[in-house]
Amino acid sequence: MHWLFEPGLFSNHTVRTALLVGLIAALVSAVVGVFTVLRGQSFAGHALTDVATAGGAGAFLAGVAPIIGFVGGGVLGAGAMDAIGVQRVKGRDIATGVVLGAATGLSALFLYLSATSSASTGATQMILFGSIFTVQPSTLPVVAILSGVVLLTIAFIARPLLLSSLSIELAATRGVRVRVVGLVFMVTLAVSVGLSAIVIGSILSTALLIGPPASALKVVNRFWLGAAIAVVLGIGATWAGIVFAYDSYYWIPSHRALPVSFFVVAFVVVEFAFFSVVHRRRRGRPATAIEDSSHHVETQWH
């Protein structure tokens, strides 16, 4: 196993913190992601990443832990989206894209100011593409508390959320406060985007949030089993990504380690491709027939 686990991997405190944070973030992202995919809100999740990026960049500029900025920006964004009623907005909406462009512009400003005003470098990589190896052990309690709150909230609203994801009309007639449940969920989504962002960076956080749940939901019919598989896939991709990134330092002659986020995203994509193939094989139907039946699944960009 020496080829896989390079020397010092597990005795390294940085790596241990990274593995722990990665575990928690992947767990929360997978659970929240299952509902996100189910509700067809992957675009909302994506839109939140743009706002979270600005938050993270702003936090970096202000010298605050990025997680605070990611989560703060995300929650503000979720509130704004609820206020103007774009929770279910789809990716083809030009208006949202243009407005989110302003958030990206703001990120550009903050990152530029961070680069020029302080001696610290690497803000861009750290915020956009993540750098889990720089997570301080002191951030762990924040991560743990946020995750605990998100998981408990999801457990609390799970059934009404499921019903309203299935049909708003059915949920409303059964007395579910659809709007409240939706808003609470958006806030948990924003927090998950933040957690995922500290692992793989804010503009890549969609991958951890959407990828493992989408893979799992392809092959199972049971919701909670799907969530469990998503958790396993998410943690698997994250841990493998961390280990490979650590190892890559030894592979490359120039000793330049590849980013964790690249490996995590790559593993998530491989998992998704694998499960898509399994899904098609199992159905025994031509691919086009399946895709046709999902014609109402809108495309998103980015």
Binding site: Q125, F129, G211, F262, F272, S276, S294, T299, Q300
Partner: peptide
């Protein structure tokens, strides 16, 4: 017609690839 997840993931992968090249 494409599934939104597949496209989202491939786009994120391109960004990640760019980040890796730059590193």
């Amino acid at each position: 017609s494409r599934s939104d997840v597949a496209t989202a993931l491939s786009l994120v992968l391109m960004l990640a690839l760019g980040a890796a090249f730059l590193t």
